[in-house]
């Protein structure tokens, strides 16, 4: 069973929650990442997500396998949107089931943190003033020009 979904369609959290459910588990933790209406003081109107899919999927599987080794959890599943999203949309979802809540919380936190740091996924922010930029890349470009 795939443990990571990369999709243009909205994420069906109820269906994913069912896939994580397990009679051996007494705890379930999930995380939803939403599109905020501002970033670093600038009003955000919409976002575009883009991914290098084969490597993003492979790396996400590695992250889930790491979580399964580090924590006492039974199931973990995550999903990330692609394409154009609006403020308030669900961009990323993580769900974890475990015998007890402490490991469910910890594994959920681990997975979302690693997803944000490691998956080759990019977002372009479009601002209310009509400008747009690739997040994390503008700073890099300006740093490069200082070198």
């Amino acid at each position: 069973m795939s443990t990571f979904l990369l999709q243009k369609e909205p994420i069906d959290t109820a269906a994913l929650r069912q896939r994580v459910a397990d009679p051996d588990c007494g705890g379930y933790a999930s995380f939803e990442g939403w599109i905020r209406n501002e970033n670093e003081g600038r009003a955000v109107s919409r976002l575009e997500y883009e991914a290098y899919a084969p490597l993003a999927i492979a790396e996400a599987h590695r992250i889930v396998n790491e979580a399964l080794k580090r924590f006492e959890i039974n199931n973990a599943l995550s999903a990330h949107r692609l394409g154009a999203l609006d403020v308030g949309d669900l961009a990323v979802w993580v769900g974890v089931s475990a015998p007890h809540r402490a490991d469910a919380f910890a594994a959920c936190r681990y997975i979302i943190d690693e997803i944000k740091q490691r998956l080759p996924i990019w977002k372009k922010e479009h601002y209310a003033d009509g400008k747009a930029q690739w997040v994390n890349c503008a700073q890099c470009a300006s740093q490069a020009s200082l070198v």
Binding site: Y52, L55, A56, R118, I121, W122, C137
Partner: peptide, 30 residues
Amino acid sequence: RVAINDEFCDWSQNLSDGDRVVFIPPVAGG
């Protein structure tokens, strides 16, 4: 970061004929 044939690799890895290379800008998922 850089990937060859859909796996992360070192910048000093030898390229081979037919390789598929992707340069990975700073990521921003989530």
